[in-house]
Write a protein that binds this DNA or RNA. Sequence first.
DNA 1: ACCCTTGTTCATCGACAGATGAATTTCGAA
DNA 2: TTCGAAATTCATCTGTCGATGAACAAGGGT
Lengths: 241, 241
Amino acid sequence: MSETVVTLKTAAKAPARRGRPPKAAAAERPAETSELILDAAEDLFSKHGFYGVTIREVAREAGVDTALLHYYFGTKRGLFDAVFLRRAEVMNGDRMRAMNAYAAAAVAAGEPLTPEGVIEAFVKPVFELSAKGGPGWKHYCALVSQTNANPLWGGEAMTRYFDPVVYRLIELVRQALPEAEPADLFWAYHNLSGALTLSMGETGRLDRLSGGLCRSGDLDSVLSYMVRFAGAGFRAVCAKP
Amino acid sequence: MSETVVTLKTAAKAPARRGRPPKAAAAERPAETSELILDAAEDLFSKHGFYGVTIREVAREAGVDTALLHYYFGTKRGLFDAVFLRRAEVMNGDRMRAMNAYAAAAVAAGEPLTPEGVIEAFVKPVFELSAKGGPGWKHYCALVSQTNANPLWGGEAMTRYFDPVVYRLIELVRQALPEAEPADLFWAYHNLSGALTLSMGETGRLDRLSGGLCRSGDLDSVLSYMVRFAGAGFRAVCAKP
DNA sequence: ACCCTTGTTCATCGACAGATGAATTTCGAA
DNA sequence: TTCGAAATTCATCTGTCGATGAACAAGGGT
């Protein structure tokens, strides 16, 4: 028995090689270390928030030494920003393209824009990434959802990275509803934005509330209901009195 | 100059009396200590979240010794729960009464319920407390907003304290829209809920986004737009195909 | 007048946080 | 071949965290 203990101890104390690791064969890519760290941080930040996570936990989940987080990202805050930044451009690029494609298709077909069409283009890429982009995207969406609710540095982060998509949405909806006042459009967007970010969180609250009747992870449902709800909302709010 | 320093030092080191404080004259109520702590905690938790606040910061803002937080609330988590609980019943009582009053008035007048009427009763007390209830209520609303976005213990907290109001809302909207399917109602509520909790946060994002055109603290605007937006949303989503 | 309860201050504990610097190893360019 | 840059481990520092226990003072019931 004591033998076993010694063996385990020795195994656990394995010299653990130091220094730069040997380059692996190109065949089996062992994934960039910095990406492993970002994945782990993304997961944990999205669940517990910035202050609820320690860099040691991130390092452990990433299977990496604590000092490496500082080597790659400087500070804990730097790591958070890197996580937030990594997918922002991809997601917003998708959304911008979807909106432009919808507008171009409508023009080409000689059909007028509709609020529902614009909103779907605005919203669909988000749910598509969340549902089919792998766990990383799901974590990222939850992170954005929480950051959006953060009163301090939530504001700046969202403003910097998400404003352009929002302005494009409003521009296109104005084309769909020419009589709309600017303030009406912003207020309507505000309501849509709340619904969208809540959905991105996927807290499971709707599922529980409805006794399983609604599944918040169901891509088609969440998209369809949001498009109809917000489409009608925009129309009602922007209608001339 | 050195004299000044010495004076300050002595003043700072003032023996600071120990033990139970003498009872103040009933005239000038010095506010219950536990309430001071709850106020401070409410403020800080709403800004930085649970893990972003230390009990020392709460104690300092409350002007109270750290040990007192443990004396009154046991653990840090106990303090948070106490903050959350304190105003939950008041707020939900107001909302429940408002919905019942609306329904009763409509019945008495022989008029049918409308989604807009129900939604206004559901939502108005919240904004009224936030706008006119003092800074504590504003902090509390922001706290609820953040808690609602929290994927871990946000769910349970909201479920425990807010479900009854939600079920009442859905019940009344079903009376207003008899053809509605249950799932439609829950999905519609989900969209309303996102808009409401985002508004409760008052992160100032809408103000910045609209270049000052919209003021998210403006009670009348936020209420009016939300009622019209969500009213139309409920109608659209629950309409028979 | 006595003493238990309540409310408060102070000192301190063990754990762990974020961060850093030195040593170590490999890669790749000159 | 040599050597600097890149990537990693380890040991450790300083500060702070949540929590506790003892001492102490006033109130209130008996």
